[in-house]
Structures are given as structure tokens and as C-alpha cells.
């Protein structure tokens, strides 16, 4: 990328970040939201790694004849952030799977509609839900 000075890189990265962010907040499908979060975070990683780059630099591993190295610190930070990202994805997907088992759908609109229907029949529903969740807990053993 070092052949392209200026802030154009950063502007494209901003577009990528916002594309991911848009998927997260506009979509009603839970799995697609998680993909959006992944896109959003991955694009932030590009921002960090771009910061560490230096013109004419090399990867920060000592080698003979190299005097200019890219900064290792953003690399370290993003290694951690990638791990955090995949951890979040795993937890989010597990939740989506359990939601699908409990509601039969992963569409936000359908879930809130079911919750609203439950609210209108307060009393009977709370025990029914508890039973539904209890059976799926049994399953998981």
C-alpha cells in the first residue's frame, strides 16, 4: 500500500467500516447481524494496521540489511482484537442457535412479535416459557 500516499486508504477503510456497521444496525436477521459485526471489526483492524505501516519498511522481524521496520505495536493490538472478534462471534452464534431452538426463527421481527403475543397472555406464558427453556437445557446435557 505504501505506493499510495495520502488519506485515500483511510477513506476507503471508513467506507468499509460503515458498510459493516450498517449491516449490524439495519438487518433483522441475527446471523447477518453477526456477519456485519465481523465486517465492522475487520475493517477497524485495517485502520490499525495501516497506522503501523511505514514507507520502505519491512515486517518487524530482525533481518540483516534492514534498517526500517513497521511498528510492531499495532500488530500486537490487532492480534488481540482478532481473537476478541472470533470469541464474540462464537458466543453470538451460540445465542442465535439457542434463540432458533426457543423461537423457531432468527428474525428480529418474528421474535418481538412472539414476545408481544406472550405479553398479552401474561401468567400462562411465563410458565410455558420456563418449561420450553427447561427442556432445551435438558437437551444440552
Amino acid at each position: 500500500m505504501s505506493d499510495l500516499p495520502g488519506i485515500y486508504n483511510y477513506l476507503i477503510v471508513v467506507f468499509l467500516m460503515m458498510a459493516g456497521f450498517y449491516v449490524v444496525i439495519s438487518q433483522g436477521n441475527l446471523v447477518k447481524k453477526l456477519v456485519g459485526l465481523g465486517l465492522f471489526q475487520t475493517s477497524v483492524f485495517i485502520l490499525y494496521i495501516s497506522m503501523g505501516n511505514v514507507i520502505g519498511g519491512a515486517a518487524p522481524i530482525v533481518a540483516e540489511g534492514v534498517t526500517v521496520y513497521s511498528s510492531p505495536l499495532p500488530h500486537v493490538l490487532i492480534l488481540t482484537a482478532i481473537v476478541v472478534g472470533v470469541a464474540t462471534t462464537a458466543v453470538g452464534l451460540s445465542l442465535a442457535v439457542r434463540i432458533h431452538e426457543a423461537y423457531g426463527t432468527v428474525e428480529e421481527d418474528d421474535i418481538t412479535a412472539q414476545d408481544r403475543a406472550d405479553d398479552e397472555t401474561v401468567g400462562t406464558s411465563s410458565t410455558k416459557d420456563a418449561a420450553a427453556n427447561a427442556t432445551s437445557t435438558e437437551d444440552a446435557r
Binding site: 465492522f40 497506522m51 464474540t88 416459557d129 427453556n133
Partner: peptide, 29 residues
């Protein structure tokens, strides 16, 4: 939580919380 809504509540919190954490990450960056 025992109610199935706990699952959806946790998911919503996960999405909002991760957006928040990513914003913090951008700020720190």
C-alpha cells in the same frame, strides 16, 4: 435466565455491547 427472553436479551446486549466496544477501539486507535 429461565425465560426464553433471556436469550434474546443477551443477544441484543451482545450486539450493542460489541458496537460499543468497537467504538471504544476506534477511539483508542
Amino acid at each position: 435466565g429461565r425465560d426464553r427472553r433471556a436469550l434474546y436479551a443477551a443477544f441484543q446486549y451482545l450486539v450493542m455491547g460489541t458496537i460499543g466496544a468497537t467504538f471504544i477501539l476506534i477511539g483508542i486507535g
